[in-house]
Amino acid sequence: MRDAGCCKPGGAVCSPEKRKRLVRLWCDGCYDMVHYGHSNQLRQAKGMGDYLIVGVHTDAEISKHKGPPVFTQEERYKMVRAIKWVDEIVEGAPYVTTLETLDKYNCDYCVHGDDITLTVDGKDTYEEVKHEGRYKECKRTQGVSTTDLVGRMLLMTKAHHSNMSNPDYQTHTDNFGKGPKGHSPWTGVSQFLQTSQKIIQFASGKEPQPGDTIIYVAGAFDLFHIGHVDFLEMVYKQAEKPYVIVGLHFDQEVNRYKGKNYPIMNIHERTLSVLACRYVSEVVIGAPYAVGKDLLDHFKEPKKRGIFRTVDSGNNLTTDDIVQRIIENRLQYEARNEKKEAKEMAVIEAMKKREAQEQGTATAQAAQ
């Protein structure tokens, strides 16, 4: 593999014993409607090496293999750049990952989740790098997928916060123990359970230092999107040494002022989504709607103290706008979801048959 060396000031190279090899990693994907599952994959990938490069596919490639994306490629590029574990992105990365791509960007390994990614022809997009031992796997984040989020918006009900009442999503699973019976474990909806460990993994753990400017913003930050990123980036740039704290309102509070069965993502999901952003230092979970004592103007107290600022990010995109994109293309997204799950189920059946054949062979050999 590659050895980046370890240079000392003046150009001298340290001894081989002290030399540290820089491990470069490659991840790629659509990263459409970037969510905490994507962020968790990239967090795990960065933990396997030193430098993480993320390839993002174009709208044309996604449309060819999966159907129309929700976000434009420019929006997706910027969303991925904002994830704090990403060192570099490659725009317009090829849909099928090859050794040529890894070598072009001087990457040792490709990292992907333990789900599957198929081309339009139903082939594994990572077959070549797997065969050559240049593939590493991380755990897929249970409880969320782009397909799941699209489904939530198509339904626009609160069922996505608790699927246990749905007989299709009971605790019984298929033979692989990964998903609801009769549904793909990768595409099907499953509940997300927050843990303190997951929050610790996403949080920076850094407290404000002397000289830092502490900036507080609050809101729902539902379905974390490019509008939120542009706003937080602008907030971050307000000071030389910013320490940005984001207050997140509880689900009930968001529903009170937004209605329409919002929020789409619950407080636990929204917490991880915001913590993954490189412009955020800390999150207050369940922040009060009112910042001060006067409920008539929830920013009256900060204004009175002269510490209130308004920031115009130049991006007016809202969660409502994202939902509208989905609704306008409802039939296309429903067809995409059904087609994807059908392909995944076909792969699962093939895996089951292969497993049964291997078990049969092992039993026959043991009997001899």
Rank of each mutant, 00 (worst) to 15 (best):
D251R: 07
Q252W: 12
E253Q: 09
H249S: 04
A218M: 12
K260T: 15
V189Q: 09
T213E: 12
K198A: 10
P210V: 04
K241H: 09
Y257G: 02
L275E: 00
N266I: 04
H183I: 08
E233I: 07
V229T: 02
E269F: 02
H249G: 02
K241R: 11
S273G: 06
A203T: 04
F202G: 03
W186F: 15
W186T: 12
V244W: 00
W186E: 13
L275W: 07
Q197F: 12
L275V: 05
Y243S: 05
Y257I: 01
E207L: 15
F221T: 03
Q209P: 09
L248W: 01
E233Y: 06
A239K: 06
R278L: 10
M265Y: 14
G247Y: 08
F202P: 00
G247D: 06
A220P: 05
L248D: 00
S184D: 11
V189L: 10
Q209W: 10
F250N: 12
E253Y: 04
Q194C: 10
T195C: 08
I264N: 02
A203N: 11
A220Y: 06
K260V: 15
D222P: 01
E253S: 11
S196M: 14
M265F: 12
F192I: 00
V229Y: 06
I245E: 07
Q194V: 10
H249E: 04
H183S: 13
M234P: 10
I200S: 13
T187C: 13
D230L: 03
N261D: 09
A220E: 05
T195N: 03
S190R: 09
G188C: 14
A203P: 13
V189D: 09
V246H: 02
Q252S: 15
I264F: 00
T195G: 00
I200C: 08
F231C: 03
C277E: 10
I267S: 07
M234S: 15
Q238L: 12
R256A: 14
E253W: 03
A220C: 11
T195V: 09
P185D: 08
K241W: 10
E269I: 06
Q201T: 11
Q209A: 14
K260A: 15
L193V: 15
H225T: 02
F231I: 00
I264R: 00
T187V: 15
I267N: 01
Q201M: 13
I264P: 03
A218C: 14
F231W: 03
S184T: 11
P185K: 05
I200E: 13
K258W: 09
F192K: 05
Y262H: 10
E207W: 13
L223N: 08
A220W: 07
F224C: 00
A218V: 14
G219D: 01
Y216I: 08
Y262A: 08
Q197Y: 03
F224E: 01
F202T: 00
D230K: 01
